[in-house]
């Protein structure tokens, strides 16, 4: 790893770690509130898979949702802040290649996602005993999902010129896709039409595959989910690298 890449990664990590109350503690608390409210209301009424309580079903979804949202948030807010304040020049002036640039922002965002996801997982250990049927899938989907959202965050951060455009991207793209991905329910409980729509949502596969790692059961095969998540990442990474190499919106 080159010194430039290591430094950019270090800077991105330091950036969120210096305000970890807001970037780590706050999203963990939010996830905990979801858990308390939904689990309290639904635990006794809903059984999703055979032998899996609703609370247990919900926890991996919440962990993954927090991971995804925070990975997105890290790369996108770092870029938009640098652009709006103008200090983006500090990373544009040095001889950092666009691949190093991409790698640093993605890895830092994945780490933020993992830290928040792990935080949610740790606090929810209090409430449920989870099985860990296939830990390799847990890890795979955590990393791929984080990388996918980190990449989407770079695209959004580069595209947006103002904070409210980024907020719009977050509210109208990222939030609906995460909420309608089966975090709070199994899509098998949906009417056919909405099941079909859910299958078009890449977030659904990431949540479903991640959950498979815990319970060994899921709505679709983890291999299909892996293909969709990995394929989506590859497509977005290609788009992002091309944007960066052309200097789209960064070097006008």
């Amino acid at each position: 790893m080159s010194v430039a890449l290591r430094t950019l990664l270090y800077k991105e990590l330091l950036r969120f770690w210096k305000v970890s109350f807001q970037t780590v503690a706050a999203p963990v608390l939010t996830a905990l509130l979801y858990l308390l409210v939904f689990a309290h209301v639904l635990d006794r009424q809903v059984e999703v898979y055979g032998g899996v309580s609703y609370t247990a079903f919900l926890v991996p979804g919440l962990v993954m949702m927090s991971l995804l949202q925070n990975a997105f948030s890290n790369s996108s807010s770092s870029l938009i802040q640098s652009k709006v304040t103008g200090n983006i020049v500090f990373v544009l002036l040095p001889p950092i290649s666009y691949r190093e640039f991409f790698t640093a922002y993605v890895v830092a965002a994945v780490i933020r996602g993992l830290v928040v996801g792990a935080g949610v997982w740790l606090v929810t250990l209090w409430f449920v005993d989870l099985p860990y049927a296939q830990p390799a899938w847990i890890l795979f989907f955590a990393l791929t999902g984080g990388a996918l959202l980190a990449t989407l965050g770079i695209i959004a951060g580069i595209w947006a010129d103002k904070f409210d455009q980024l907020a719009a991207f977050q509210n109208f793209v990222v939030m609906p896709l995460t909420f309608l991905s089966g975090v709070f329910y199994s899509i098998h409980s949906l009417p056919d039409f909405w099941q079909a729509v859910s299958h078009l949502n890449p977030f659904f596969y990431m949540i479903d595959g991640f959950r498979y790692g815990f319970f060994g059961q899921s709505d679709v095969s983890p291999w299909i989910s892996a293909l969709v998540a990995g394929g989506s990442f590859a497509v977005l990474a290609g788009i992002t690298l091309s944007m960066l190499s052309r200097g789209y919106k960064l070097r006008n």
């Binding site: 010194v3 950019l8 270090y10 330091l14 500090f90 990373v91 040095p94």
Partner: peptide, 12 residues
């Protein structure tokens, strides 16, 4: 920190 980071970006 600002200077260390900038220095690192240039591979130093």
């Amino acid at each position: 920190e600002t200077l260390r980071i900038q220095s690192g970006y240039f591979g130093l």
